[in-house]
Nucleic acid binder design. Structure first.
Lengths: 239, 239
DNA sequence: ATTATTGATCTGTGATCACAGTCGTTGGCG
DNA sequence: CGCCAACGACTGTGATCACAGATCAATAAT
């Protein structure tokens, strides 16, 4: 019977709405601070408000959306005050993931990572801004998947949700090419560290990548004023 | 007019349900693997099913509850396979919080921490098992609050949610007194490190505390061997 | 006596409705 | 001309209902 019909999607409508909103946030299709209404989303998604409100509540729990005192929802806007806070958290958690990947990843993933980074580099040289963002994201998550921890991967995905809207803002800023080009170099450094199982260096290099990109973002997003440099050196975890 | 009436709770019913369930999980009032039904909870809480399902969905996104393929909900049961995974994550994240606390905390919080730890020690010596758990939790979160990061605090709370049910299981295991007594000693080591702003040592000591407690828990919860015993909760779920 | 089937009951899910707030606009009054 | 009040069009929230799938139990058939 398997040759006659194929399995269909049996997931909940609410789950699909959640995934759709998540993807949209990831790809920066929403602006930071943008107001979302349940009914409008329901109409756009072609469902009733019911699944949408549950999906929205889940995103609020993840801090991807914020509920104002008016009880209206908006895409969480990173302020200058808590921007560095989030970046440092990312350095810790994603650095740990890289460290774990260096200890666990089989050798074959390194060539895979290099291939992904090559695609990323091509997008950079071509000036394809959406390709850059996607390539960068693709590389990072390939590393995190190599850490082989569902819990960790989920946590990182939750962290990235808050930066998706920021990306949308940076898409059309000139000068990003140079920044991404340096990023590709650091990526190679990460892969090399994973290849020789140097967990400490993998962690440092990945945190460096985040820190470099974040300071560039901060400069163009908030302006230079008040910009405090994140911690001078990454702290190594002990085991 | 302020002297005639006092402010009342204007939060959403859904929010209150969420907090109530969260507290219940924190305090280990639910068994790992216990099955929860929306209607039963709604009746127990005195509301309609509507706020409950939203609260439950939020807890599912936090991995505090799990939705089976049956689409029924159960309190997430930590298996031997992913137990260590969660513990290592906790060591990283909570260790980072301790490190941050060491760098930021004003001196006055150290005396506060010592006071909390003293209360904890008294509960240990008195053999008050719920007092031990509460005291331990109280101390840890006092440290994490000293890190002064809402995002971090929320993330840690989310991590602890999964260990609440485990605590309920360990409450009536003999020999916990000795374990907690050692914990109080390590707590003191954490405070000392924070006091002299030794971030590295604070991180190490706090991770040590988690690791020591977790290996003790694992021994009594899963048994010494790799064989994981069937979950202590009722029946349900053959999938 | 044992197995298979059917029926009742309970599960989550989605839609719809009612309601109480909030916001913006428009109308009328000073 | 400017300000304020009232109205109307939104918002999220909670309750209720209808329905499909799953579970369990009792009954019927072998």
């Amino acid at each position: 019977m398997n040759d006659k019909v194929r399995p269909i999607d049996v997931t909940t409508v609410q789950e699909r709405v959640y995934q759709e909103l998540r993807n949209a946030l990831f790809q920066g299709r929403f602006m930071p601070g943008e107001v979302l209404t349940i009914r409008a989303l329901a109409a756009a998604l072609g469902t009733s408000p019911m699944p949408v409100r549950e999906a929205i509540q889940r995103l609020v729990t993840e801090n991807a959306l914020t509920q104002l005192p008016n009880r209206t929802f908006q895409v969480t806007a990173l302020t200058l005050e808590n921007y560095d806070e989030w970046i440092r958290l990312r350095c810790e958690v994603e650095g740990y993931a890289a460290q774990r990947a260096a200890l666990r990843a089989p050798a074959c993933v390194c060539s895979e990572l290099r291939k992904i980074n090559k695609t990323f580099e091509r997008a950079v040289e071509a000036g394809d801004s959406v390709g850059m963002l996607q390539g960068n994201q693709h590389f990072h998550f390939a590393v995190y998947e190599a850490a082989e921890s569902d819990a960790l991967l989920k946590m990182i995905g939750s962290l990235w949700l808050r930066f998706g809207p920021v990306l949308s803002f940076v898409q059309n800023v000139s000068g990003s090419t140079e920044m991404f080009r340096r990023g590709a170099t650091v990526h190679e450094r990460v892969v090399a560290a994973i290849e020789r199982r140097d967990a400490k260096e993998a962690r440092f290099a990945l945190a460096l990548d985040i820190r470099a990109a974040s300071s560039w973002f901060r400069l163009h997003h908030f302006g230079s004023a008040g910009a405090s440099q994140p911690q001078p050196a990454p702290r190594q975890g002990r085991h």
